[in-house]
Design a protein around this nucleic acid. Structure first.
Lengths: 186, 186
DNA sequence: TTCTAGGTTCATTTTTCCTTGAACTCAGTT
DNA sequence: AACTGAGTTCAAGGAAAAATGAACCTAGAA
């Protein structure tokens, strides 16, 4: 497979995928915005999702026409969410022509397809932190309730209820991910 | 109870609740922002949550020091989410002094306390719409996949997977609300 | 009828968040 | 050693969302 092998599928697929890619990009861009995630991040995931081949950093910048900065930050976020994975690449490049080597440089990504994995990532990075700092604030709230000169009983009741809300939340979250699919094979 | 009865608990409670209210307001302001809801909306809910008495429109404007516009829009959103309820008020006002009548005018609100109810509201107003428009977009995506000249099988596979994601999502959502508490008594 | 206070609407301003682009680092090539 | 392209960082600009305030509507009180 010397010269027939084309790694940079970018321009080729672009010409022949009949709009699927474009639609996919804007679809995911829209979806993620509902979760408070920047549009460009959704675009990147959508692009990877619509690509039969893993794509590298330069592909993403070029095909989405976004800045390197956006691409870099977007990929960072997607990595931290576990929403993309690095694709394998042949490690012995020495015997390839320099033109092909050029294309094979750097890391290529493919989208994570496990729904459970994706949801877990969002929960871990977005919701869990809230639960943590929330616990501190609840403690403080309870103290304030105890020290409140008037309506002591009322405030204590409220503080107590917030605590039970938090507990229910933290017990339900793992259940939710379990419902969304099997644990990821490692 | 002519002059002793104080309905506008605003200034009084403010002076005597020892910071509980303030902490509550900023707590909810923070929480709701994680769900993409404006800060002021969280503040309003927090204020109501920290108040032993139902509060009216003017109380909210005054104690949070926000504009009437913000208060109005915030209350609208909270109503649409089912996160607040109108409190009962004595309907025969004629025998009260005019000073008290002044305070009793308009609607007063208290916070919805059922966690299930709150989550259901968010799901209904924020997530469900996505599922609806999402269905259309998936249909379109499938068509594009079918018409794609190259990699037909790959694109069809992706379209199919999106469809199963959507299905799983719509089946899991009701379960989630069920886990969060008993159905609200009507 | 007129007055007042509760409440809504919407154009304008403010704030917040996202994107950009330039400067930089680092690894592999020549 | 010098070069090239991948990738990061961050100050600054720009776009989108939220808060404001003025004009307006309404119902009950005087």
């Amino acid at each position: 497979m010397p010269s027939g092998r084309i790694i940079t599928t970018a321009s080729i697929t672009l010409a022949t995928n009949g709009g699927f890619e474009q639609e996919c990009v804007s679809f995911f861009a829209e979806v993620v915005q509902l979760f408070g995630v920047p549009k460009s991040v959704g675009q990147i995931y959508g692009l990877l999702y619509a690509s039969p081949e893993p794509l590298g950093f330069p592909d993403i910048v070029e095909r989405l026409d976004i800045s390197k900065g956006s691409a870099s930050q977007g990929l960072q976020l997607l990595r931290s969410l576990g929403a993309i994975n690095e694709a394998e690449r042949s490690s012995s490049l020495s015997n390839l022509s320099s033109e092909i080597k050029r294309e094979a440089r750097g890391v290529a990504y493919e989208p994570e397809l496990s729904l459970r994995q994706l949801v877990t990532g969002v929960l871990r990075e977005r919701i869990a932190p809230m639960a943590t700092t929330g616990t501190d604030r609840l403690k403080r709230l309870k103290e304030l309730a105890e020290n409140s000169p008037a309506n002591n009983k009322f405030y204590l009741g409220r503080a107590k209820q917030l605590e039970t809300w938090r507990k229910r939340f933290t017990t339900v979250m793992p259940l939710l991910t379990a419902l969304l699919g099997p644990k990821k094979k490692r």
